[in-house]
Simulated assay, not measured.
Amino acid sequence: MRINKTIDAPREFIFEKILDSCLFDIEKNTGKRPKVRSLKGFEYTKDFGKNQRGTVKIDELTEPNIYAFTTKTNRNTFSTRWELHKIDDRSTDVIIEESQTSNGFIQMVNDKAVGFFLGRLKKRQMIAILDNMDRAYNGSNR
C-alpha cells in the first residue's frame, strides 16, 4: 500500500503528531514513556486483541522527515514507513508505504484474499488520519 497526500500543515507539526501517537502506544503497552532520542531501535510487545500479540520495532526515526517501524506477529510481518517532504513553510507532502510479508503459504493465500477486501478500508483509515492532522492544524472549519 502506498499513500501520497499533501497536507496544509508544517512538517514539524505532522511529525510531532506521529511521535505523540507512537509514544502513547508504547506507554499503553509497556507502562513506560521513553525519550524521543532513544526511540530508534526501541522494541516492545503489543496486544492486538483476539489472542494476537506482536512485536513492534522502530527501525528509523529522523526528525522531522522519517518514521519507520516493523510489526511482527506469528502470522505476518508489516513494514511501515512515513516520509514527510517539506513543500513550503505551511505544506507537507506525506508518503506512507506499508508492505506485508506472510509467514507460510496458506497464510499468504489468506492474506491476499482478505487484503483484497480490507486494503481499501485500511487506505481510507490512513487518509482519515492525515485529514485529521490537517484539521488539527487548521481548525475544524475545513
Score class of each variant (00 low, 15 high):
Gly104Ile: 08
Asp59Lys: 08
Ile127Met: 12
Pro34Glu: 02
Phe69Leu: 14
Phe42Ala: 04
Thr30Trp: 00
Thr45Tyr: 06
Lys35Asn: 09
Thr62Ser: 12
Arg124Asp: 09
Val36Arg: 08
Ile95Ala: 11
Lys72Tyr: 03
Phe48Val: 00
Asn141Pro: 00
Ala9Lys: 08
Val56Gly: 02
Ile106Gln: 11
Glu63Asp: 11
Ile26Asn: 02
Ile96Phe: 14
Ser79Glu: 13
Lys28Trp: 10
Lys86Asp: 06
Asn110Gln: 08
Leu130Ala: 05
Gln100Leu: 15
Phe15His: 09
Arg2Glu: 08
Val36Ile: 15
Ile26Thr: 07
Ala128Met: 08
Thr80Pro: 02
Thr92Asp: 01
Tyr44Arg: 01
Ile7Glu: 02
Gln107Val: 14
Leu23Asp: 05
Tyr67Lys: 09
Asp131Met: 14
Lys72Arg: 13
Thr73Trp: 02
Met1His: 07
Glu63Met: 08
Asp93Tyr: 10
Ser102Cys: 03
Glu27Pro: 01
Lys46Leu: 06
Phe116Pro: 04
Arg90Met: 15
Arg37Leu: 10
Ser91Tyr: 14
Phe48Leu: 00
Asn76His: 13
Thr6Phe: 07
Thr73Gln: 04
Phe13Pro: 08
Lys112Gly: 09
Phe48Gly: 00
Ser99Ala: 10
Val114Leu: 15
Thr80Val: 15
Ser79His: 11
Arg2Gly: 02
Met1Glu: 10
Tyr67Thr: 04
Ile87Gln: 13
His85Glu: 11
Ser140Gly: 06
Ser102Lys: 00
Arg135Gly: 09
Phe42Cys: 07
Thr80Phe: 04
Arg37Ser: 15
Met108Ile: 06
Val114Tyr: 08
Arg37Met: 02
Asp111Glu: 09
Asp20Arg: 13
Lys17Val: 05
Lys35Glu: 08
Ser102Pro: 08
Val36Lys: 15
Asp88Pro: 11
Thr30Ala: 06
Ser140Cys: 04
Ala113Cys: 07
Arg11Pro: 01
Met1Ser: 12
Gln100Tyr: 10
Lys122Ala: 12
Thr62Glu: 15
Ala68Thr: 05
Asp111His: 03
Pro64Met: 04
Arg11Glu: 10
Met133Pro: 01
Met1Thr: 10
Tyr67Gly: 01
Ile95Ser: 09
Asp89Trp: 05
Cys22Asn: 06
Asn141Ser: 12
Glu63His: 05
Arg11Asn: 12
Lys40Phe: 05
Asn138Gln: 10
Asp88Thr: 09
Asp88Gln: 10
Glu60Thr: 12
Asn132Tyr: 09
Arg120Ala: 09
